[in-house]
Simulated assay, not measured.
Amino acid sequence: MSPPRLTYDAFARIAPATPQALIAMGRQADESGIDKQIVELVKLRVSQLNNCAFCLQIHLNVARKLGVPQEKLDLVATWEEAGIFSERECAALAWAETLTRVVGQSISNDAYGSVRRHFSEEEVAFLSVSIATINAWNRLGAAFRFAPPIQKGVPATA
């Protein structure tokens, strides 16, 4: 295990407006009415793609509190093959992967059309904010190797 380059608390002291802004963005998306379990599945998948242990652990803890079934937590990395995710969850996860893997490519009309078949325009806007926000958190968490928070009674690893 690699040691943290900077702790989350130290980062928050150095750049306090940054976590505040990201928390505000996340809160706005969380309060938009989109199913919170879907949002957490998206945050988990994006955090897996970005290799951010800090965010992955946080969102595993949140997902468990929200009652996301353990099978979905176990299989979100292979959601396309798992056969246990709803069409709406699959659309959200596909959109999350598209926005996370955007480097060097444009976002197709087909990708947008796929997510719009399952989410309203407003929901896609807030889902996209959630994805953008977790990507920002992931880049900070991965850059500084923030240590995953271990919650009492919840193991840091699966």
Rank of each mutant, 00 (worst) to 15 (best):
R117H: 02
W137Y: 05
V115W: 00
A96T: 14
E97W: 01
R116W: 04
E123L: 09
I134T: 08
H118L: 12
I134V: 14
N109K: 08
S106A: 14
N109A: 11
H118F: 11
V129Y: 04
R139Y: 05
Q105T: 15
T133Q: 10
E97D: 13
E121S: 05
R101M: 09
R101S: 12
V129I: 15
S128C: 13
I134F: 04
E123N: 07
A132H: 05
S108E: 12
S120Y: 04
S128F: 03
N138H: 04
L99I: 14
V124T: 11
E122I: 11
D110P: 00
E97L: 05
S114P: 02
V103R: 12
V102Y: 07
Q105F: 11
T133S: 05
S128V: 11
E121F: 07
V129T: 13
R139D: 09
S130F: 06
R139F: 10
L127S: 05
G113T: 08
H118T: 13
N138P: 06
S106N: 12
G141T: 07
I131T: 09
T100V: 06
N135K: 01
S106E: 11
R117G: 00
L127M: 09
R116Q: 13
V124H: 04
S106I: 11
F119L: 12
S108P: 04
R101C: 08
Y112T: 06
A96D: 09
L140I: 15
L140G: 02
S128H: 07
S108I: 07
S120C: 10
N138D: 14
T100C: 01
E97M: 03
N135V: 14
T100P: 07
G141P: 03
N109L: 07
Q105D: 11
N135M: 06
I131C: 06
I107W: 00
Q105P: 00
E122G: 01
V115S: 01
S114D: 15
V124W: 03
E123T: 14
G113Y: 08
D110S: 12
A136V: 06
T133H: 03
R117D: 06
S108L: 03
W137M: 10
S128A: 14
N138M: 08
V129K: 00
R101F: 06
I134M: 06
N135A: 08
Q105L: 09
S114W: 04
N135P: 03
E121D: 15
Y112M: 06
L140W: 14
D110H: 07
V102L: 09
E122P: 01
S108H: 03
R139G: 05
V115P: 00
F126A: 05
V124G: 03
N138I: 12
W137T: 11
S108M: 02
R139P: 03
